[in-house]
Amino acid sequence: MGIFCFLFSAIALLLVIYSITTVCKVKKQISEMLDILADIKSGNGNRRILAKTHEIVAPLAYEINNIILLYENKISILRQAEEANKRLMTSLSHDVRTPLTTLIGYLDAVHKGVVIDKERDDYIEIARRKSHDLKDYIDVLFDWFKLNSNEFVMKIDMIEAAELTRNILIDWIPIFENRQIEYDISIPEQPFWARLDPDGYMRVLNNLIQNVISHSHADKIGISLCEFENCIKVQLSDNGIGIKNEDLKHIFERLYKCDKGRSEKGSGLGLSIAYQLTEKMNGKIIAESEPTKGTIFTLIFPFAI
């Protein structure tokens, strides 16, 4: 009997000691958790509460971590968008500033009487041209913003692509001739039906051709349209300076330019717009190039079913 009494009280004592230590430990952990939560509250969303899997507070800690992580991910997406916008704004302000300041340079020269007579008229003409270029650039910019904020409305319809392409190219032929660029256009007679936004398609093609004219220094351009694995393939090739391999990866990114100067005509947005428009029409755009030999841009759109 005595032995049982002794055993019982020993076990009871052990249990009491165990519960007291556990309570103390949990208390300590909770105060640590409160410290961490205060840190998180002050904006440090990267803080985590660490707990060993078998601890009493573990499920609580894990759940709190989970919630923090959830919110942190949402904040992170917003923060990144903000970063990207900030970068874009700085970049754009330089892009607008350079042509605008140059334009002012000419007008100031005229205004101060640095130049007279014929040269004066020339300056005014240059300024006029530059302001038009700047307007064109701002138009492109506007398009690009609309595309990026998903406000660009597409009217995708069944379109006969061969005829549309021919109509677009007709306007370019005088320009090719004017710049003494040899052109080779091959578009079959048969109809090619695809689901396209005619305006969007026109912009894509115009941007690509404009890109060749302003940057490639080519004297030959080839434009062809054909069928390729149930798709329409439009190919635009030139024999210009080509694009370096390391640049090729980035040419469809916004504001990417192979040359650093920004006064020359060209927004750095043309190809980016072409890329986004093509994507929106479920098409693909591919660029291949060999420096000094030329560049091939390929557009692929699925046939309409």
Partner: peptide, 18 residues
């Protein structure tokens, strides 16, 4: 502005950034 004009007119140079 004047520098830009001079670069364009006298040096025929367009690779610059203001």
């Amino acid at each position: 502005a004047q520098a830009a004009r001079i670069l364009e007119q006298i040096f025929d140079e367009k690779q610059f950034l203001i």
